[in-house]
Amino acid sequence: MTYANSRMRLCGVVLASTLMASGCSSPQAIEGVVRPNPGQPLLDRIPGPMPGFGSFDHFSDALLAACPRILSKPNATAGRVGSQDFQLRWRLSSEYCAWLYYTPEHKYEMSMLTDQSRPDDLNSRKSCILPPVVEDRRYPPGSLKYVFALHNHPYNSTLSDYDIRFIVSKGDEDGFEVETRDGKIRLSIIAFFSDSDDTAHPTCDGFFQYIPLTGQLLKWTSAQGAWHCEQTGTIKWFARTDFRFEKKTAPCQNSTEGAP
């Protein structure tokens, strides 16, 4: 999720989709992306649905559609660590985030994206501040159910402490399971990534997932049209602000949440 560089923040603007050549310029508008106006506070609501995304009967189909939609945004990927120009692409990269939600019509839809962020003077990390509420005017307030918090990682890197705390906070507010027509789905956060150095046409190569209710950290990867899941660790909580990562490498078992 995304941090603007310090120079742009000093100019009083939100992170632009592309780095401006010089001076303090207004962010370039990006289709499907919303952000606060210059000088305004961060958005606390995000509109839905995403135009042209469609509605889906199954969450796995919605995930497969969301991955390329998010990774195709400007500077959403930085390629592989160690590849030529990676450091430059990393400095220019952005994270975009959105909600995948379940509607009263029993469909899965995606909100619009945002790339709003807080400043990081060292430009040492990327983050996107996802508003906690989707505002879909087709439905009454409070009728939407939140399934997955979606975002991209500019390269193949695991979920951050911020990601983990964010989704646990959301679960504390609205619950950690969603009742759907197909049964219960556990709330989780997902970070898509691409291993391609062709940042103009990135491939959707996988995603990381954290499921608070089970504590599982999963890594899904795609190869030749098939998806593979591996558990990479677990999160052990000692308090709502204190947790420890425990490495655990094993095939996924009994995990359908997020399965493409």
Rank of each mutant, 00 (worst) to 15 (best):
W220K: 10
P119T: 00
V147I: 15
K170Q: 10
S94H: 08
G12D: 08
Q216W: 13
S157K: 02
D85S: 03
A239I: 03
K107P: 01
A191T: 08
W227I: 07
Q116E: 08
I185Y: 01
N37A: 14
T180E: 03
V168S: 04
L43W: 02
V81F: 14
T221N: 10
P27T: 11
R118C: 15
H201Q: 12
E230P: 04
S188W: 03
G225R: 00
G39N: 10
F166H: 06
M8K: 13
A29I: 13
P74K: 10
S25Q: 13
D197P: 03
A62N: 12
R244I: 11
I167S: 00
A4R: 11
A76C: 01
A200L: 03
Q216A: 13
R181A: 13
A66R: 02
R89Q: 07
L63D: 04
S94G: 15
Q40C: 09
T234L: 04
D161M: 05
W227S: 08
W227K: 01
P140K: 07
S222Q: 05
G79V: 05
E246G: 06
G225W: 04
V134R: 01
P131S: 04
E105R: 07
G48W: 05
R69F: 09
S124G: 13
D195C: 07
W90R: 02
A65C: 06
E135H: 06
P68D: 08
S94R: 13
L19A: 13
G258F: 05
D85A: 13
F243V: 11
L144Y: 03
K248G: 02
Q224F: 14
M20N: 05
T234Q: 02
I46T: 10
A226W: 01
Y3N: 12
T256W: 11
Y139K: 02
D182T: 07
Q224G: 13
W99C: 01
T256L: 15
A29Y: 12
S143N: 02
S188I: 13
C97S: 07
E95W: 01
K73I: 06
K219R: 10
T221I: 15
K126N: 05
L88V: 02
R138H: 03
F59E: 11
T158R: 02
L43T: 04
H153K: 09
A16I: 02
V147Y: 01
G32N: 07
S194G: 03
R118M: 12
P47H: 10
V81M: 12
G82I: 14
D120T: 00
N5L: 08
C252G: 01
L113Y: 10
G215R: 00
T256S: 12
G183W: 02
F238I: 05
C11I: 07
Q87N: 15
Q253R: 15
I70F: 04
A223I: 14
P47L: 04
S93G: 10
T214Y: 11
W237P: 01
I30G: 10
W99F: 09
S117D: 05
V134P: 01
H106W: 07
A76Y: 00
E109I: 03
A259F: 11
G52D: 03
Y139E: 06
A16G: 14
T158Q: 03
A21P: 02
K247H: 06
R45H: 11
Q116Y: 09
D161R: 08
L122Y: 09
L92D: 15
Q84T: 15
L187S: 05
F207N: 03
G23H: 00
A191K: 00
S188R: 06
G175K: 00
P132C: 06
Q253V: 14
D61R: 15
I46A: 05
A223R: 09
S222G: 08
H228A: 01
R165Y: 13
